[in-house]
Amino acid sequence: MDIEPRLGVDFGRVIHGGPLAPGCDDTAFLDGTFEEALASPATAGVYEVLPGLIEAFGGRAWIISKCGDRVRERTLAWLDHHDFYARTGLPRGNVRFCYERAEKAVHCRELGITHMIDDRLDVHRAIRGIVPHLYLFGPAGGPEWVRHVPDWAAAEVIREDIPAGRGRSATRRSR
């Protein structure tokens, strides 16, 4: 039995505020006022690329984010404030949170995630063996078992890893 492809995407430094140099935090979102957090920008290119990926996955996409309660509240408010669901096609209920990065593995297993975009190598280590297609987002590359995507334009390559005919508009591109 074939598994329908499912996309997981991290929020911080992937959808919002990144990519930043390793070790840098988005202080406006994390430490600023609620209003500053809402006003902070999406990552360049996310609205140009992510909607097509969500469509290619037939809408089977989730945000899987590690954060505490305060940042969870800000994240959900930011998604609404920026009309994220309508702009990307992500179903409103497809947002998951956990308190530790390694707990993303629980969500990935439960949701059957087949492709995951995250900026943290420790997350990829935790989900390796659970998620077949791993994408390390941001300026720093990683080991050979994770595919480096430095920005959203480069993330278009994810379409190549969707099995032909398995997504809504999935097409294989030549490399």
Rank of each mutant, 00 (worst) to 15 (best):
I3W: 01
I3K: 11
E4Y: 10
R6T: 11
L7T: 10
L7A: 09
G8D: 10
G8Y: 03
V9G: 08
V9N: 12
D10Y: 01
D10H: 03
R13L: 13
R13C: 09
V14K: 01
I15N: 08
H16R: 15
G17P: 02
G18C: 09
G18I: 06
G18N: 09
L20T: 04
L20R: 12
A21S: 13
A21V: 06
P22H: 09
C24A: 13
C24D: 14
D26A: 15
D26T: 04
D26I: 07
T27I: 08
G32Y: 09
P41A: 12
A42T: 05
T43A: 13
G45H: 01
V46Q: 05
V46K: 03
Y47S: 00
E48Y: 00
E48P: 03
E48V: 03
V49Q: 10
P51D: 12
I54V: 14
E55C: 10
A56M: 04
F57E: 00
F57N: 01
W62Q: 05
S65V: 07
K66N: 07
C67P: 04
C67R: 13
R70E: 15
R70D: 15
R74T: 03
R74Q: 12
L76G: 04
A77I: 09
W78D: 14
W78S: 11
D80Y: 02
H82V: 02
D83Q: 15
Y85R: 10
Y85H: 14
R87W: 00
R87L: 00
G89W: 11
R92D: 15
N94F: 03
V95Q: 02
F97I: 02
F97S: 01
Y99N: 09
E100D: 07
E100L: 11
E100M: 11
E103H: 12
E103C: 07
E103R: 00
K104N: 05
A105T: 03
V106C: 01
C108I: 11
R109K: 15
E110G: 06
E110S: 13
E110R: 14
E110K: 14
E110A: 14
G112N: 04
G112V: 04
I113N: 00
T114A: 04
H115R: 02
I117M: 13
D122E: 14
V123C: 11
A126I: 08
A126Y: 02
A126G: 07
I127R: 00
R128Y: 12
G129A: 06
V131W: 00
H133L: 00
L134N: 10
F137G: 10
F137T: 12
F137N: 09
P139W: 08
P139Q: 07
A140L: 13
G141V: 06
G141P: 05
G142F: 05
E144M: 13
E144S: 10
W145K: 10
V146P: 14
V146H: 01
R147S: 15
H148F: 08
H148E: 06
P150I: 01
D151F: 04
A154S: 11
E156R: 15
E156C: 07
V157S: 10
V157L: 06
V157I: 13
E160G: 07
D161E: 12
A164M: 01
G167N: 04
G167Q: 03
S169H: 12
T171K: 12
R172N: 08
